[in-house]
Write a protein that binds this DNA or RNA. Sequence first.
DNA 1: TCAAAAGTGTTTTACATACACCCATGA
DNA 2: TCATGGGTGTATGTAAAACACTTTTGA
Lengths: 229, 229
Amino acid sequence: MINQYKDEDKVLLAVDCIIFGFDNEELKLLLIKRDFEPEKGKWSLMGGFLKKSEVLDEAASRVLQHLTGLNDVYMEQLYSFSKIDRDPVERTISVAYFALINIADHNSELSESHSAQWFGLEDMPELIFDHNAMVKHAIRRLRYRTATQPIGFELLPEKFTMRQLQKLYEAIFDHELDKRNFTKKINAMDLLVRLDEKDMTSSKKGSFLFKFDEQKYKKKVMDGFSFKV
Amino acid sequence: MINQYKDEDKVLLAVDCIIFGFDNEELKLLLIKRDFEPEKGKWSLMGGFLKKSEVLDEAASRVLQHLTGLNDVYMEQLYSFSKIDRDPVERTISVAYFALINIADHNSELSESHSAQWFGLEDMPELIFDHNAMVKHAIRRLRYRTATQPIGFELLPEKFTMRQLQKLYEAIFDHELDKRNFTKKINAMDLLVRLDEKDMTSSKKGSFLFKFDEQKYKKKVMDGFSFKV
DNA sequence: TCAAAAGTGTTTTACATACACCCATGA
DNA sequence: TCATGGGTGTATGTAAAACACTTTTGA
């Protein structure tokens, strides 16, 4: 078969990862300080190029794994960015992905070796290229996804307190929530299992730990779901 | 500056358009019968390759314009598909776009010259490559977008009756709606202007024509918006 | 005069919101 | 004993859903 596509333009395809974490207080992003040109020394999302042997999801996982050491992470393709001069070196289209990780899980030596650092959404530096726009987009998507599927749990450790979960939702929606109403709504979802175990670090009384029920969780994700603020 | 990207793989980037239309009864898709290999003679979405001089949105508009003659159409980037062998000729990543057009507006000679044809979602043929998956994805997005922004109007002529609008929403959500509740909800949106004009084709009594108020429409799109079924 | 679609309001139900006090404990 | 965060229920408002009859007019 002759190749009827041979006169078409080829381009570089990058993936860039918006990596969200949660430190029990605020939503954070893992950014790297570029140690190569162009824009050396500036802050940037972690990225890489698609190889011919990979699909996009694999490329994004590889990039994430490279920076955090983590596998099996919640990732979702976001949007493809294609401004002509977005990368000054060469025409590059970038497919943005966002990832939700548990900060405690990531390999911090690996991150440090990439001069990576967590930033709160409020005190983030300016990023290179169109990365600021990617982050904006990712926050919107995270809010929508959280309102639609219980993916918030991906950002928490396996066992967590109701207050941690609430703080997380508050951070994602940037909106204070009522403790009682929140508990009610979460319980109505019927996704959590309360353990016979308390976290004693946050108060003298201690607060119950929960984990979420993966079976029910998967079912809810399938059926759709709604959380409103 | 030396090109530090020179060892990276380059790929072909395609755009494929999911083109929705509405014929007052059902949602339809504009498909083309391929007249070139591979998969010649099979049904497919309209597509094309990204040129180095274009951004993705431009490529998608060009492809759409080529088939329908239409400019200034509602289009939205959907998702990028990257399975290794999705196109057997060469490694090609495709960025899917969806478009909403008014069937009456499109240039039907142009479409015919591409052997294009409208299909209801129910009686659609199997499509080549991963185009079926693209369509599925597009329907999901269209539902979400319609629930979130009043974009349904993009599929209607300038003047339309309340029943046409209802039929459209019913087609999008594949769900019958109550006439009274629908009218109430649409009126509450405060987007429509009732004209002193009736459409006499659908009944003896005739039914009022409406148009939507572009000013208010734009404002609502900005502010966000909610329509639930 | 009747068939066919248009138009129009009220009641019921579910869900979101607002709101305040007691509990357990370590210091 | 008291300061701190944890845990819980009820009343109110708002939006969705269910539901049926009258109007107009061309055939």
